[in-house]
Amino acid sequence: MGITIQSLNKRYGKKRGITDINLALPKGGLTAIVGPSGCGKTTLLRTLAGFLTADEGRILFGSQDVTHTSPQQRKAAMVFQHYALWPHMSVFDNVAYGLKLQKVAKLDREARVHEVLERVEIDTSDIAVRYPQQYSGGQQQRIALARALVVQPEVLLLDEPLSNLDAKVRQRLRVGIRSIQQSFGITAVYVTHDQEEALSMADYVIVMNEGRVEQAGTPEEIYRQPSTYFTAQFLGESHTLTLHRQGTRQKVVIRSGDSFIESNVEVQRDDEGKQQVREENGHYVLQGTIRHHLFMGSYYRYMVEIESQHIFVDDDALLQAGPCTVKIPCEKAYWFDI
């Protein structure tokens, strides 16, 4: 089922948690909610789950209004950041717990537990005698995912489930979670502070800031067509310059890998000596000075000073400190009025 959110508001006393959220999340897709700490993404997720009650607005799962129903009545399951597995229960009992509450027959319960654990690549030969703490962090998170999936929810909610894992395990589990979500056909909502995670896993991305939705769309739309300054500078390794363009001062957001350095070219300046940004063969041309460089393995990263401001530019070639010209493809420079 799809999820519709209409004029949703949640306050904590006088402080607003989320403000006027209006969204339609795709049926059977994975929606990622991303933003800085305190932006409201977890508040939104917990309101969808029913752990928090909205002050105003409505939440619909499919055609059913679940705004004021209990978490148990929402046909949703939650996967938490800290696994929330019971250490005194075996792996089998942890995963089977929800089925026991649903009074599923013992034989069916056993079959479903084994099936879902195999789907998340957990060996089921000794799950009746092994406990969660005997597994690695990545395995425990897969067990927590199995516990959520075994009850066959119509909505799967995930609250930063990979943030406690190391980088290599996160990479593997991103693929695993996405594959499982697609194979089950579940509508999923995934909260993360990791923008790479959001862009790589999701069908639909919501960028939040200060309790509001800054922008929502496909990963490609969000990254390549940011509609606000916040979205542009939040995504990717981005840097902001304040420059004169077409006679006015504007902010331009540039991502490290989107620009490149060439040999020096004379750049026009205005009467005050300020650099005028000009276009040349589909690029914006800026005069700068290389101050430092870092060897990053497969490329070099240069700190370039432009009008007493600094950006980082990546290039394959090793260049010396000193004057340079930075060229930015026009479609990869994001301009905003000051």
Rank of each mutant, 00 (worst) to 15 (best):
M1K: 13
I3N: 11
T4I: 14
I5L: 14
N9M: 12
K15Q: 15
I18K: 10
A24H: 14
A24C: 09
L25R: 10
G28Y: 09
G29D: 05
T31W: 05
I33K: 05
P36Y: 10
S37A: 09
S37H: 04
C39A: 14
C39L: 09
T42R: 06
T43V: 15
L44P: 05
L45P: 09
L48C: 10
F51P: 12
L52Q: 14
T53I: 13
A54D: 11
R58D: 11
R58Y: 10
I59F: 09
S63Q: 14
Q64A: 12
K75C: 05
A76L: 06
A76V: 05
A77T: 02
V79D: 07
H82M: 06
Y83S: 06
P87L: 07
H88T: 13
M89N: 06
S90H: 06
D93C: 02
N94W: 10
A96P: 01
A96V: 10
L101N: 13
K106F: 04
H114V: 12
V116P: 00
R119N: 00
D123P: 00
L145C: 06
A146N: 03
A146M: 04
R147P: 00
A148L: 04
E154C: 01
E154M: 03
L158G: 03
E160I: 07
P161E: 04
P161Y: 03
L165Q: 02
L165K: 02
K168E: 11
K168G: 01
K168P: 00
L173G: 01
V175E: 05
I177Q: 00
S183H: 01
Y190I: 06
H193R: 04
A198N: 04
A198H: 03
S200I: 07
V205Q: 07
M208N: 08
N209G: 06
N209C: 05
G211F: 07
R212F: 01
Q215V: 11
E221K: 11
R224E: 15
Y229S: 08
A232K: 08
A232P: 07
A232V: 11
E237S: 14
L241Y: 11
T242A: 12
T242E: 15
L243T: 05
L243E: 05
H244G: 11
H244I: 14
K251Y: 13
K251P: 01
V252L: 10
V253T: 14
I261R: 04
N264T: 15
D271Q: 08
K274Y: 08
Q275Y: 01
Q276H: 00
E279W: 00
N281W: 00
N281H: 09
L286D: 02
T289R: 12
H292N: 14
G297P: 09
E305F: 06
S308T: 14
S308L: 09
I311S: 08
D314S: 13
D316K: 15
A321I: 12
C324V: 15
A333Y: 07
Y334D: 04
W335E: 02
W335S: 02
F336A: 06
D337H: 03
I338E: 15
